[in-house]
Deep mutational scan, measured.
Amino acid sequence: MIINNLKLIREKKKISQSELAALLESSRQTINGIEKNKYNPSLQLALKIAYYLNTPLEDIFQWQ
């Protein structure tokens, strides 16, 4: 199971779900699903999230 700190990191950087979704060329619903652990992002999307949040991938997503 993958757990994530996306919501915590996103809020700390003062970025809304909609703003992050626009940067990622994704939907706000996708970001919401990832944050609620209802959806696991593809590797490509996970890497883009890490890039746009300027945060190491392993700080956002962790195996448990």
Rank of each mutant, 00 (worst) to 15 (best):
M1S: 05
M1N: 05
M1T: 07
M1I: 11
I2H: 08
I2K: 09
I2E: 05
I2N: 06
I3S: 08
I3W: 06
N4G: 03
N4R: 01
N5E: 02
N5I: 07
N5R: 08
L6K: 01
L6A: 01
L6Y: 00
K7M: 08
K7Y: 05
L8D: 14
L8S: 15
L8T: 15
L8M: 13
I9L: 10
I9P: 01
I9K: 01
R10H: 03
K12H: 10
K12R: 13
K13F: 11
K13W: 08
K14D: 09
I15Q: 02
I15A: 02
Q17S: 05
Q17R: 07
Q17K: 09
S18Q: 13
S18E: 13
E19M: 11
L20F: 05
L20E: 00
L20N: 02
A22G: 11
L23T: 06
L23I: 10
L24K: 00
L24S: 09
E25A: 12
E25C: 15
S26Q: 12
S26R: 12
R28Y: 11
R28F: 09
R28D: 10
Q29W: 11
Q29T: 12
Q29M: 11
T30G: 04
T30M: 14
I31S: 01
N32I: 14
N32P: 02
N32D: 15
N32E: 15
N32K: 13
G33C: 15
G33F: 13
G33Q: 15
G33R: 15
I34C: 03
E35A: 02
E35W: 03
N37V: 02
K38Q: 14
Y39D: 05
Y39H: 11
N40Q: 14
S42R: 05
S42M: 04
S42C: 06
L43F: 13
Q44D: 13
L45P: 00
L45M: 12
A46D: 00
A46P: 00
L47N: 10
L47G: 07
K48A: 10
K48E: 07
K48Y: 04
I49T: 00
I49S: 00
A50W: 05
Y51H: 12
Y51F: 14
Y52S: 06
Y52W: 11
N54M: 10
N54E: 14
N54Y: 06
T55G: 04
P56A: 10
P56L: 06
P56M: 07
L57G: 01
L57A: 02
E58R: 11
E58P: 09
I60S: 01
I60H: 01
F61T: 00
F61Y: 01
Q62H: 07
W63M: 05
W63I: 05
Q64V: 12
Q64W: 07
Q64F: 07
